[in-house]
Computed example of a mutant assay.
Amino acid sequence: MVVIRLARGGAKKRPFYNIVATDSRNRRDGRFIERIGFYNPMASGAAQGLSITAERLAYWQGVGAQLSPTVARLVASQKAAA
């Protein structure tokens, strides 16, 4: 099953997450099919904290991909802010 979830990057104590479409059997930070966006919880000032490509998210959901609970929360917060 394809799942849309966060893949952690960044330095120690400075997390940065890529929002990726991947097979659910792959490791969290392992191989993925496509990068859909990013989430930077440490963003401050003019830095962008969340970016999701809406067209690609809609495509993957259309072909049956499931959102992880955290990504679902981020997508809902982005829609509410827009």
Score class of each variant (00 low, 15 high):
S44V: 11
A21L: 14
D29Q: 03
R28G: 10
N18G: 02
G45W: 07
S51T: 07
Q48N: 09
N40H: 13
P15T: 15
G49P: 01
R56F: 00
I33N: 01
T22M: 05
L50K: 08
M42Q: 01
I52L: 04
N40S: 11
R56D: 06
D29E: 10
P15K: 10
G49A: 09
F16R: 11
Y39P: 02
R56C: 04
R31Y: 08
N18S: 10
I36H: 10
R31N: 06
I36F: 10
I36R: 10
T22L: 01
A21H: 13
G45I: 06
N26P: 02
M42V: 00
G49Q: 03
G45Q: 05
I52K: 00
Y39S: 05
I52S: 00
R56A: 05
A47D: 07
S24H: 09
L50I: 11
P41Y: 12
F38D: 06
I33D: 05
Y17R: 14
G30L: 10
T22Y: 04
R56L: 05
A46D: 14
A47F: 02
A43C: 12
R35M: 12
S24K: 14
P41F: 11
E34D: 04
R31L: 07
G30V: 12
I33L: 12
A54R: 15
I33S: 01
D29P: 01
E55W: 01
D23W: 10
V20D: 08
D23N: 15
Y17T: 14
R56E: 03
R14Q: 11
D29S: 02
A43T: 13
E55M: 00
Y17E: 13
R28W: 12
I36C: 07
A21Q: 14
Y39I: 07
R27K: 11
P15A: 13
L50F: 04
L50E: 06
R14I: 06
P41C: 11
N26T: 09
E34P: 02
T22G: 01
G45P: 00
R35C: 10
S24C: 06
R31K: 14
A43N: 12
G49I: 03
D23L: 12
A21R: 13
G37W: 08
N26C: 09
A54E: 15
N18R: 15
G37Y: 06
R56I: 04
S24P: 01
F38L: 09
G30C: 09
A54H: 11
L57H: 01
S44Q: 12
A43P: 09
I33A: 02
E34K: 09
A43Y: 13
A43Q: 13
Y17I: 14
P41V: 11
P15Q: 14
E34N: 03
S24I: 12
L50P: 04
A54S: 12
T53E: 11
R28D: 08
Q48D: 07
A43L: 13
Y17W: 15
G45F: 07
R25V: 05
S44W: 08
G30Q: 07
R28Q: 14
F38K: 08
M42Y: 00
F38S: 09
I52Q: 01
P15W: 11
D29F: 05
L57C: 02
R35A: 09
Y39F: 14
F32K: 03
N40Q: 07
I36G: 05
I33K: 06
